[in-house]
Amino acid sequence: MAEMMYWQAVQRAHDEELERDANVIILGEDVGLVGGTYKATSGLLDKYGAERVIDTPISENSFTGLGIGAAFMGVRPIIEIMSVNFAWLAMDQIMNNAAKVHYMSGGQLRVPAVFRIPGGTAHQLGAQHSARMEKVFMGVAGLRVVTPSTPKQAYGLLKSAVRSDDPVVIHEHENMYQFKGEVPDEEYLHPLEGSEVVREGTDVTLFGYNLSVHWCLQAADILSEEQRIEAQVVDLYSLSPLDREGIHKAVANTHNAVIVEEAEPVCGVGAEVMAIINEEAFFELDSAPIRVSAANVPMPFARNLELAALPDAKKIVAAVMAQRAAR
């Protein structure tokens, strides 16, 4: 087991899948010569050539559609959309074609495409480079949505996504490419469905995904040290489908739930997880579930406003304490 950075894990998965299957291609802005804005495709143009590692023009909707059309014929494209904010331009192809063609063709056409989409609030990039949009992709039937929180997941989920016959959207985080973690030396495929308990605890469950898992872990440490509250942390790496059984099990364990999301709260991950708790585990609850979300604003530029708009460990601790006080 070697320690590597998140971007290196993604790069390794790319390399191995390109090596394994001649039908795998990568396309996107600056993925070839430049090697990717976050280095996730570095070295691959030299190794596999311009026919398979393709620098595209800045035409998100059509190069995304190109990947989808190629997938109809069994090509397995990994389409990198440089920032999730640009994915709005490709929404027609993703939502109307990738998500729906298998269904509306009565199962004839498959879309084994992967959409790798960095996003999240990095550092003062302003409202049009800081959004999180996973809730939008979760809301449409026909797509799988995963979001890795560790280098191991980033590696294993990408490899599984490439091999899936379904369209898979992978949300990565611009602030996580330098994160370090252990990745198995041998080939590893991470399941595309499910959730993972990343910290044991009996008093409250903190649900997170991607970067918010790390906020939850920090909050759990603070709660343990300062309040002797032991929080369980659940990593919802699969956002579509969400792991109903895993959510039920966690709530049955601690009877208290806090969901942490790096996005505006309306119609979001928190709302959906709360709905599932309501449907699956209502009578297990000792307190009303709480969301810790980003503020309902376009992400501001000023650093103090940006920080105020985002969740963090302190806000999660405060939410847990408020939940207990209201009980």
């Binding site: 559609g65 059309g69 997938a71 090509v75």
Partner: peptide, 14 residues
């Protein structure tokens, strides 16, 4: 249009 160039890309690649 976009799907068609994808079909053409697959034809070229394969």
């Amino acid at each position: 249009f976009a799907l068609a160039i994808g079909l053409a890309k697959a034809i070229q690649l394969q």
